[in-house]
């Protein structure tokens, strides 16, 4: 099973690299779709069907919004002469990558190996599932043990929608005489 997961991750990396280097913005957005749909298959392999359902629909809607924005403006990539500062930016990314990798290595040293996760917290949730009465344990966690997080999520979603409406409004609402 792990070999399929590695294949999906390699596909995601290739898709993202192509998406960042494409000459045309439309093909950049479409190859960004590769990353999202490979992520759906990775979620299915990792036994997370709830996430797979949400991710496949969210990816389609994100692509529709991105293509709508591009069709509304321009799909040409900027014509760029070779920028001599490119080496500086690349060096910055390399330094940060090495720094992040050092921290990542220290952190994953404390984690258990892949697939040998010790579900200490989850054991309590699984045993407590008789209290919530919900057959789907993920729904039980979202709406019972951690309902505060769901409330916070609803607030963040509301704030994002208000932000979109504020930015995209050209005319104010006219008052009726």
């Amino acid at each position: 099973m792990e070999i399929y997961l590695i294949l999906m991750l390699v596909l995601m990396i290739l898709g993202s690299i192509y998406s960042l280097h494409a000459k045309d913005l439309l093909s950049a957005v479409i190859s960004y779709g590769i990353v999202g749909f490979a992520l759906v298959i990775a979620f299915l392999l990792l036994q997370a069907p709830d996430l797979a359902i949400v991710q496949v629909v969210v990816e389609i809607i994100t692509l529709i919004i991105m293509i709508a924005v591009i069709k509304d403006s321009t799909s040409e990539e900027l014509k760029s002469k070779f920028n001599p500062k490119f080496y500086i930016y690349f060096a910055v990314v390399a330094i940060f990558a090495i720094l992040f990798f050092y921290i990542f290595d220290r952190v994953t040293g404390t984690l258990s190996q892949f697939g040998e996760h010790f579900t200490r917290m989850a054991t309590a949730y699984i045993e407590g599932s008789q209290e919530t009465g919900s057959a789907n344990l993920v729904t039980g966690v979202i709406f019972d043990f951690r309902a505060y997080d769901t409330l916070g999520e609803a607030t963040v979603l509301f704030t994002a929608v208000i932000g979109v409406l504020t930015i995209l409004r050209i005319k104010g609402k006219k008052k009726e005489k």
């Binding site: 709830d50 359902i53 949400v54 009465g133 919900s134 057959a135 789907n136 993920v138 729904t139 979202i142």
Partner: peptide, 9 residues
Amino acid sequence: HLTPGGGFA
């Protein structure tokens, strides 16, 4: 609350 899915999906 019975099958995969829920409010978000």
